[in-house]
């Protein structure tokens, strides 16, 4: 009985960790991704630890599980808060349609409009793009290879 419960907890925790990972890949902006990464991660890890505590049994195992969960609860929100604040100040783009009560409260760096990091766009512009020259270029078309190159360099 204990084994079945422990196995269930382990599988559930692993499933939540998997969903958190999918969230990091799927969600559209840095702040949304953080929701999935940091906190569903805590729940997933907590459930897996509880499963491990059940499987091993004994006060020794539970003490360790309790301490690990305690440290997770204390440290994760701080790193998440620091990352979120840094992302905001660094100018990480917000998903269009987000309300922004922080506008004007915190200084915010600007990133070029298509969301690529400036340094990547510069890097792409320095590279030759021969395929584009063969095509009839629409007005403003020359600016495109740089931006698409910059985009491909950033995880989307």
């Amino acid at each position: 009985m204990t084994e079945i419960l422990a196995a269930l907890l382990l599988v559930l925790g692993a499933a939540i960790a998997l969903i958190a990972a999918i969230g990091v890949a799927r969600l559209p902006d840095a702040f949304l991704r953080m929701h999935a990464a940091t906190k569903a991660g805590v729940v997933g890890a907590g459930l897996m630890l509880a499963g491990a505590g059940l499987a091993f049994g004994g006060a020794d195992a539970w003490l360790r599980v309790g301490l690990i969960v305690l440290f997770l609860l204390v440290t994760v929100p701080i790193s998440s808060h620091a990352l979120g604040r840094a992302a905001y100040i660094g100018g990480a783009p917000l998903w269009p349609g987000s309300a922004d009560a922080l506008a004007g409260v915190l200084p915010r760096q600007s990133i070029d409009e298509d969301g690529g990091l400036p340094i990547l766009a510069k890097h792409a512009a320095a590279m030759p793009a021969p395929a584009i020259e063969a095509m009839p270029t629409p007005p403003g078309g020359l600016a495109r290879p740089a931006s698409t190159g910059g985009k491909s360099g950033t995880p989307s």
Partner: peptide, 11 residues
């Protein structure tokens, strides 16, 4: 607030 998924305190 930060630990409950769905909300993150920023500042």
């Amino acid at each position: 607030v930060t630990l409950t998924p769905g909300t993150t305190s920023l500042d």
